[in-house]
Design a protein around this nucleic acid. Structure first.
Length: 482
RNA sequence: GCCCCGUUCGUCUAGUGGCCUAGGACAUGGCCCUCUCAAGGCCAAAACACGGGUUCGAUUCCCGUACGGGGUACCA
């Protein structure tokens, strides 16, 4: 029990859950699952101005959608304010930190003067303790700075290996603002100690924060956890992923018809590889295979094309029963079926989804393909298809007439019976099956691509199929002229 | 500027000194299957950033350069 791994995901609610955050959450979750550990969710809302409850909820929703359930929390960092202050007071007592009476204005002036060369000049470093306390008691405003010791700070990063910083390159950073609220690094360390976090897994943009945090752990007399710094996720242009690259919030992918398991699978492979050639995996297999050792150091480009391919793979693997609840709302929204029909026509819809699921990469594509089976007649005849397959209008018309007759007599109405009737019509016309199926396909769905022709006819139903054939023959007649 | 981190096909990656004529996947092109489409199968094209070392031998180890990224806040 004591060596149980405890990890946490600690987003700040200043925006939606974006793919980078989702990947970080996923890796934490995966490690917890893999090792029988605990996954803690903590909302880092110490920056009150930029945080909002709405965003907190959006993040929770995003994680729920992905299935990244947390074992403890969500905790709110702001709730730990008293503890954070207590920790700072202790640091002050131990002389590991000191009061800084420099005003932001003074600091800014120095910064402007020295530009990039700027380092805190430690003006308040040597103020004697009694004087410092006297000024504080007199009501003089102050912030609290951490007294960075001499030497070097190093850790064995789970993904980067040995990483070290000379302490002289680290400024005496502020841990408590003038208004008495803690700064990020202090709050994080205080919380991670409090929550007994054993492994800190986060983006590698935090590498430079790590030595500061380690120094804090040491000053607080706490055990330093293991650190794993994950590579960044980039846009197609190699720049850090941002809004201008398109969708970055996981919620947007949900809306685009991406399956959560596909999103997780894709994200898992961004910066980690399972070893072996299998790439399409469910959550269980991901958790089973996950290890920090196989996490990469190099930042990765988010490739939407591969995400969609992977989504198609997952859709194909998902039973129609699970897909229908996702497809149906889109059909209802588009006014193609009534809410009630989702139940009354369930079997018919399931057969349709089952047939279409290998033909679409997103839920919306599936719904799009379903459209033609749900409207009364062909909405648009694709020009190129008509030109190619209805070239000889008179012949086509004759074949459609034969098909119409054959279909009228099919009983029972099964794909097999339909197939037999169509083959008979082809034989009668003395042409290969394709020469019959293609013109017919254009007549039925308006284009030259669709699932198997017997499936199409069967799904349309006798009435629907005959009606469309009639319509096509009218169009054919018009094409032949008066 | 300074401090860190990184660099294998267009993209995600395998590779831990000889097994590499550098493997897989997406995307691309072709072929097969076939009533079309999709799926699937087969094939093709496509990469070790550069320069020095170390070594009998470097994609793999070391150093430098270039390029990219992160940090350098009383943001997180």
């Amino acid at each position: 029990m004591s060596d149980q791994i405890r990890v946490r995901f600690a987003p700040s609610p200043t925006g939606y859950l974006h793919v980078g955050g989702a990947r970080t959450a996923l890796f934490n979750w995966l490690l917890a699952r893999r090792t029988g550990g605990v996954f803690v969710l903590r909302i880092e809302d110490t920056d009150r101005e930029r945080s909002s409850g709405e965003m907190t909820q959006a993040i929770l929703d995003g994680m729920t959608w992905l299935g990244l359930t947390w074992d403890e929390g969500p905790f709110h960092q702001a709730d730990g304010l008293d503890r954070h202050k207590g920790d700072v007071a202790r640091l002050l007592e131990q002389d590991a930190a000191y009061r800084c009476f420099c005003t932001p204005e003074e600091l800014n002036a120095k910064r402007e003067q020295l530009k990039e060369e700027y380092r805190y000049d430690r003006a308040c470093y040597h103020i004697p303790r009694d004087e410092s306390e006297r000024r504080a008691a007199a009501g003089e405003p102050f912030a609290v700075r951490f007294r960075v010791p001499e030497g070097e700070t190093a850790w064995d990063d789970e993904v980067h290996g040995d990483t070290r910083f000379r302490n002289e390159s680290i400024d005496d950073f502020i841990v408590l603002r003038t208004d008495g609220t803690p700064i990020y690094n202090l709050a994080v360390v205080s919380d991670d100690i409090h929550m007994r976090i054993t492994h800190v897994i986060r983006g590698d943009d935090h590498i430079a924060n790590t030595p500061k945090q380690i120094l804090l752990y040491q000053a607080m007399g706490a055990a330093v956890p293991r650190f794993a710094h994950l590579p960044m996720i980039l846009g197609p242009d190699g720049k850090r992923l941002s809004k201008r690259h398109g969708a970055t919030a996981v919620g947007q992918y949900a809306e685009q018809g991406i399956l959560p398991q596909a999103m997780n699978n894709f994200l898992a492979l961004l910066g980690w590889n399972p070893g072996g050639d299998v790439e399409v995996m469910g959550m269980d297999e991901l958790a089973e295979r996950f290890s920090l050792e196989r996490v990469n150091k190099k930042s990765a480009v988010f490739d939407t094309a591969k995400l969609e391919w992977m989504n198609g793979q997952h859709i194909a693997l998902t039973p129609a029963e699970e897909l229908l609840p996702l497809v149906a709302p889109v059909l209802v929204r588009d006014g193609l079926i009534a809410e009630a029909e989702v139940d009354t026509r369930r079997e018919w819809l399931l057969r349709l989804v089952e047939e279409l699921k290998i033909r679409g990469r997103t839920i919306h594509e599936i719904a799009g393909h379903a459209r033609t089976y749900l409207v009364d007649e062909v909405e648009e005849y694709d020009e190129a298809s008509v030109a190619k397959h209805w070239k000889n209008a008179a012949d086509v018309d004759q074949r459609l007439a034969d098909v119409r007759e054959g279909l009228s007599g099919v009983d029972p109405w099964t794909p097999e019976g339909i197939d037999a009737a169509l083959r008979a019509a082809a034989d009668k016309a003395g042409v290969g099956f394709g020469k019959l199926a293609q013109p017919l396909r254009v007549a039925l769905v308006g284009q030259a691509a669709s699932p198997g022709i017997d499936f199409v006819v069967h799904t349309l139903g006798r009435e629907g199929a005959l009606r469309r054939i009639d319509r096509a023959r009218e169009k054919l007649a018009a094409m032949q002229g008066p």
